[in-house]
Simulated assay, not measured.
Amino acid sequence: MSIGLFHTRLSAHNSLLGSPVLTLDLLVDTVHKTVSGIASVFASTYPPVNFRARVWGNYSEAKLTASVENHIVLTLSGSPSGPLSQIAETFHLKGILGADWASGFVDYSYVENGQEHYVRHAAVSQAPVSQPEPGTHHPMPLYAVALQQAQASGDLAQLKSVVRQGEQQLAQHGVLQSALEQLNAEIARLEAR
């Protein structure tokens, strides 16, 4: 187990067809033995379930009598807006995980549309962390506000500087060509005045 802070993404479900799938994105603080994050429950049954809550709680390490290794006893609560909110808690979880936070079983409940749903003995496993597809890039700033301000002020030097930044971005990612051509045309028009 890591010392300090670490992130884990867990999935919990049982083998019943159409049963909900719980995904936990958790930040674990091993110094204070606290946990916080997001819980999402999804089921494609009718009516579909698409529940989400901010969660918080704590954990302890326990040695079960029949086992040689340590286990994690995890307790979580949750609501749509966090622990300091006046909104009632809509999520509860209790479970036992392996010391590596990668397996175990949980019982949880969630409230959706005013009705409480209970899921018992859901198997826990590591959930894949979504990664961008190869060749895709993270969004880059497009400098729209800076362009508008430079254009509104009539500051030609500032406008040229913003366009140069965009050109550098274009050289890296090749996605802004037509927008930069329009900006260069606007600069040429302003210079012609």
Rank of each mutant, 00 (worst) to 15 (best):
T75E: 12
P80V: 11
K63W: 00
V49D: 03
L97N: 03
S2E: 08
G104L: 06
A171I: 05
K63E: 01
V49P: 03
V106S: 09
Y110K: 09
S103T: 12
P128R: 15
T8D: 10
P132I: 14
N113R: 15
R164H: 08
E167A: 08
Q158T: 02
Y110H: 06
T30D: 07
E61R: 11
S40V: 08
L84H: 10
P47A: 08
L74A: 04
A185Q: 15
V55S: 07
G37A: 09
E89F: 03
V21F: 01
S130G: 02
Q131E: 14
L142Q: 12
A43V: 03
Q86I: 10
Q168G: 02
F105D: 11
Q149G: 00
L10E: 08
E133I: 09
Q165M: 13
L74N: 03
I96C: 03
L180T: 01
R52Y: 01
P128E: 14
S109G: 06
T23S: 10
D29H: 15
V162Q: 04
G18I: 09
D100G: 05
T34N: 12
N50G: 03
Y46L: 10
G104E: 07
G154L: 07
P139S: 11
M140K: 13
L190N: 02
G104S: 07
G114N: 12
A88F: 09
F91S: 09
E112A: 14
G82W: 10
S77G: 02
S60F: 02
K63A: 00
V163I: 14
S85L: 06
D25E: 13
A62W: 00
D107A: 07
D25H: 13
S2V: 06
Y59T: 02
L17K: 12
L180C: 04
N184D: 14
L142F: 05
S44Y: 06
D25F: 05
F51I: 05
H92E: 08
S36T: 11
H32D: 14
L156C: 01
V111E: 15
R52Q: 12
H13D: 11
V111I: 15
V49G: 00
L26K: 04
E181K: 11
V68F: 01
E112S: 11
R54W: 04
K33R: 15
H173R: 14
Q86K: 08
H71C: 04
P80Q: 13
D107Y: 06
A179F: 08
L180K: 05
R193Q: 15
T136G: 04
Q169R: 15
V41G: 05
H121E: 14
I3R: 11
V145K: 08
M140H: 13
V163N: 07
D25A: 12
H32K: 15
V162S: 02
A152D: 09
Q151A: 09
G78K: 04
W101A: 06
F51Q: 05
Y110R: 05
Y59P: 01
L170W: 12
S178H: 12
H32I: 10
Q177A: 13
I72S: 01
F6H: 10
S161C: 01
L74K: 00
S109Y: 01
R54P: 00
Q115H: 08
A53G: 00
L26R: 06
Q131I: 13
S130R: 14
